[in-house]
Design a protein around this nucleic acid. Structure first.
Length: 270
DNA sequence: CCGACAACCTGACGGC
DNA sequence: TGCCGTCAGGTTGTCG
């Protein structure tokens, strides 16, 4: 599930358990996810107190009073379970607090990752240094987007999925935002009129904020050990709705680009 | 520099 | 019921 809104929802859910808490147990249950867990993860985090949580793009951040930040990425199938009743084969990292709360990072496909970086070095961390602006941040606007897209002939959909252009969008929300803005996913990115980038930026913000709100509205569910994350899916305009009606009255179509599904409405997206 | 694509790994689902 | 093919929200590296 995890694109930016899902990570944001996850971070908010984790905050209720972790903020201010002292970690008494940090236990990887296997050697790696997408890559190896940091070898000193347990040693550096055990006994530390969580001073804050945050998010950058699709990465979740857990800051500690030892000036370390644990960075987690949920990949395609990762999620944090809170106080699980039982552990399964996919519970790969356990974190326990002094108050007796237990968190488990579960990730069946193991496309996720966990890293540990000195808090002061976060901006220079290679994966972060390469990221474009936060779509919900003040520095992302039509002007910045216009500069980033200038001269690019690649389809706008591919550009919006590129984390260097804007950080945090994935396949679902790119499809949704392009539909909201009435822009065809195949349109050459550099040939979209500046005037149309304004509503595109607005659509991106709106779809992300709506999804966060939907996630936030079911935080209670999130807190259930086997609960699901908030469901925004019921509100999809085009994603996974091939053959159904677009809000404009047209029919949603699916196409495949570079092996990934694109859902769009040929009637209103030009 | 750019874009297409495979690879990483497991689970869910539809068809037969 | 069971087997097989297909697909899945991300990132990274390679190749042309």
């Amino acid at each position: 599930m995890p694109e930016l809104p899902e990570v944001e929802t996850t971070v908010r859910g984790l905050s209720s358990v972790l903020l201010g808490a002292r970690l008494t147990r940090v236990e990887p249950r296997r050697a790696d996810l997408r890559r190896a867990f940091p070898v000193d993860l347990r040693q550096r985090l055990t006994g530390a107190r969580v001073t804050g949580l945050g998010r950058r793009a699709k990465y979740g951040l857990i800051h500690t009073d030892r000036d370390d930040t644990m960075i987690f990425h949920l990949g395609m199938s990762g999620r944090w379970r809170i106080d699980p009743e039982a552990l399964g084969a996919h519970d790969h990292l356990l974190v326990e607090t002094e108050a007796g709360r237990l968190l488990s990072l579960a990730d069946p496909r193991r496309f996720g990752s966990v890293d540990l970086v000195a808090t002061g070095d976060l901006d220079a961390w290679p994966a972060f240094a390469a990221l474009g602006p936060e779509p919900l941040g003040p520095e992302f606007d039509a002007d910045v987007l216009a500069v980033a897209l200038a001269g690019r002939v690649a389809p706008i959909k591919a550009m919006l999925l590129d984390q260097r252009i804007v950080a945090g969008l994935g396949n679902i929300y790119v499809c949704e935002a392009l539909n909201m803005a009435g822009i065809a996913p195949t349109r050459a990115a550099g040939r979209i009129a500046r005037k149309r980038l304004v509503p595109l930026v607005e659509a991106i913000r709106e779809v992300l904020l709506s999804a966060i709100e939907a996630g936030g509205s079911t935080l209670r569910d999130y807190a259930r050990p086997d609960g699901e994350l908030g469901y925004f899916s019921k509100q999809f305009r085009v994603y996974a709705r091939e053959g159904e009606a677009c809000p404009c009255g047209g029919v949603v179509r699916r196409r495949v680009d570079s092996g990934r599904s694109t859902f769009h409405c040929p009637a209103c997206q030009r």
